[in-house]
Computed example of a mutant assay.
Amino acid sequence: MDAFNDRTSTLTLLATRRSGKARDMDAPGPNAAQLDAMLGAAIRVPDHGKLNPWRFVVIERRAAFAEALLAAYLTDKPDAGRLEREAVTQFASFAPCLIAVLHTPRESHIPLWEQELSTGAAIQNLMLAAHAQGFVANWLTGWAAYSPAVLALLGTAPERIAGFIFIGRQAKPLEERPRPAADAVIARW
């Protein structure tokens, strides 16, 4: 493939990436080599100071993670009803692949804001790499991303959970969401 077609393919990939709903994903998920390639692409992001202010936790023991999530949830909401409890445990089983992304700030002269941007870029690269391999991905946060008890399962402060990335095959057709008009978000100075 010549360089022009390669660039065109990349632009097409970028223009066609969409999030799939985690609860609508089916197996198969990525195999070990595909997942390694995705994570390899995720770490090739702008990273001022070479700080690696992000970490990936591949959640393999999903049933155990669901139990731990529920225990964390019940710490804050001991009176949670059956539907709430089911929703919490189902979260852990959405999609065949689940990766928690941790923002890991580093003591540095590099501003925290730049480190946070690098973490977001790592997530975007992960999602683009999933798309490039024929999968869909979904970045979710919700209560679990802000729970100190869930953070304790995955990391330690001052780390923060940037989100949970679900990867799988889309079982239902993807819906295009409204996108802003270019002139509403692009200015020329």
Rank of each mutant, 00 (worst) to 15 (best):
Q34H: 08
Q34L: 12
D36K: 08
A37L: 15
L39A: 13
L39K: 06
G40L: 14
I43R: 08
I43Y: 11
R44H: 12
R44M: 15
V45F: 11
G49I: 02
G49K: 08
K50D: 08
K50T: 07
L51S: 03
L51D: 04
L51I: 05
N52P: 04
N52W: 04
N52T: 10
P53T: 04
P53F: 00
W54Y: 13
R55P: 03
R55L: 03
F56Q: 02
V58Q: 02
I59A: 01
E60H: 06
R61I: 05
R61C: 07
A63E: 11
A63N: 09
A64I: 07
F65L: 13
A66T: 06
A66W: 02
E67M: 12
L69Q: 02
L69A: 10
L70I: 10
L70S: 12
L70H: 10
L70R: 09
T75Y: 12
T75A: 09
T75R: 11
D76K: 08
K77E: 10
P78R: 12
P78T: 13
A80F: 12
G81D: 14
G81C: 03
R82A: 15
L83R: 08
L83K: 11
L83F: 12
E84N: 06
A87E: 11
V88P: 00
T89R: 07
T89N: 10
Q90T: 13
F91G: 01
F91I: 06
F91R: 02
A95V: 03
P96A: 08
C97T: 15
C97F: 05
L98I: 12
A100V: 10
V101P: 00
V101G: 01
V101I: 15
H103A: 10
H103T: 08
T104S: 06
T104M: 02
R106T: 05
E107A: 15
E107I: 07
S108D: 09
S108I: 07
P111I: 01
W113R: 11
E116K: 00
L117E: 02
S118A: 14
A122L: 03
I123Q: 01
I123D: 00
Q124T: 04
M127P: 04
M127D: 03
A130P: 06
Q133Y: 11
Q133E: 15
Q133F: 10
Q133S: 14
V136T: 14
V136I: 11
A137F: 08
A137V: 08
A137L: 11
A137W: 06
A137S: 15
W139P: 10
L140K: 15
L140M: 15
T141G: 06
T141A: 12
T141R: 07
G142A: 12
